[in-house]
Design a binder for these strands. Structure first.
Lengths: 153, 153
DNA sequence: CTATGTGCAAAGATTTTGCCCATAT
DNA sequence: ATATGGGCAAAATCTTTGCACATAG
C-alpha cells in the first residue's frame, strides 16, 4: 500500500489525478518484463477493469510518457511498445518474433563521446537497440529446418 | 551514369527490376542528408515523376529495406523515416521539431560489451538514437522567450 | 513473352479526438 | 465544486493490398 500511495502522490504532484484506470495501467506495465504494445496492455488491463476503453489506455500512455513514468520503444514495422523502466537502457529486438528484452548494460562510454560530436545540442537522453534473432527463435528454426514456413527470407 | 548503372545492376542481382520509380526514390533519398518520411519522399519524387503514387513509394521503401539499400529510422510519435546510409550509425533527434541528423561516431565499444550480455542471440545490427533539442530550436526558443506559442510544455 | 512493378482506390492498422458524463481532489 | 479523466465512437494518420494494366529483362 505504501508504494501505491507514493505513486499516487508522485502523480498528484504533477497536477494530474490518480484514477483507477491510470493506476492499473501503470501497475500492469511495471509488473511485466516484456514490453507490451498499447493493444496488448489494453487486453491485460481489461482483465482488471472490464469496461476500460482502448482510448483511455492510449491517452494514459501518452500522459505517463510526458510525465516520464513510462518510456516508448519504437521498432520497425511494429506498433509502439512501452516500458515502465524509464532510465536509459538498451533493448534487443528479435527481428523474427518481434520480442523486445532489456540489456543489462549502461553504454555510457559511447554516449559521452557522442555528446562531444553534437555541439550545440541539448541532449536529454538516448536509446540503443540491438537487432538480431532471439535464442528462442534460433532453436525453433533449427527444429523446423527443412520446413518451408515462417517469415524467413 | 556509371553509378546509376552499378546501382541498377545491384538491384538486378537481387532478382528485382530497376524501374524509373525505384531509381528516383533511391536517388532522391541518397541526395538528401535529412531523413525524410515516406510522405516527404513522395512529395520530393513527385517533382521528378508527376504521376507516381504514394503506394509505390511505400512499396519500394519496403523492398529496398529488405534488400538493405535503405534503412528505417523509427522515432517516437512520428512516422517512420528513411536513410540511404545503411551502415550502422547513430542519429540524433530533436524532440521539438522532429528533425533527425547523423552522428559521426561509431560506438563500437559499447556494442561489443552488449554482445557479451546477449548470450544466445544472433546479433545483426544495432541502432543508437540520441534525444535532445537541436541548435536551431534552441536559438528559436530563446528568441521567442515570453511568447506563449509553440509546442513547449 | 512473363514475372515484376505501377497506379488507383479501398481497406487495414494504429492512434487521436470530440462530446458528454463520471470522479478525484 | 470543478477541473481532470473516462467511455464511446468517429476521425485522423500512416501503411498495406487487390486488381488491372504497364514494362523491364
Amino acid at each position: 500500500m505504501d508504494a501505491t500511495e507514493d505513486l499516487s502522490k508522485s502523480i498528484r504532484d504533477t497536477g494530474r489525478r490518480m484514477t483507477r484506470q491510470r493506476r492499473a495501467i501503470l501497475h500492469t506495465l511495471e509488473s511485466v518484463t516484456c514490453h507490451p504494445t498499447a493493444a496488448e496492455l489494453y487486453e491485460m488491463v481489461r482483465r482488471e477493469i472490464a469496461g476500460i476503453s482502448p482510448g483511455t489506455v492510449y491517452r494514459n500512455l501518452n500522459v505517463l510518457q510526458e510525465l516520464s513514468f513510462v518510456r516508448e520503444i519504437r521498432t520497425a514495422g511494429e506498433p509502439t511498445r512501452y516500458d515502465a523502466r524509464v532510465q536509459d537502457h538498451p533493448h534487443a529486438r528479435c527481428s523474427n518474433c518481434g520480442c523486445v528484452v532489456d540489456v543489462p548494460l549502461e553504454p555510457d562510454v559511447c554516449i559521452d563521446e557522442a555528446a562531444d560530436e553534437l555541439v550545440g545540442w541539448q541532449l536529454t537522453g538516448y536509446s540503443v537497440q540491438f537487432d538480431g534473432i532471439c535464442p528462442n527463435c534460433i532453436s525453433k528454426s533449427q527444429a523446423e529446418k527443412g520446413d518451408s514456413e515462417g517469415p524467413w527470407i
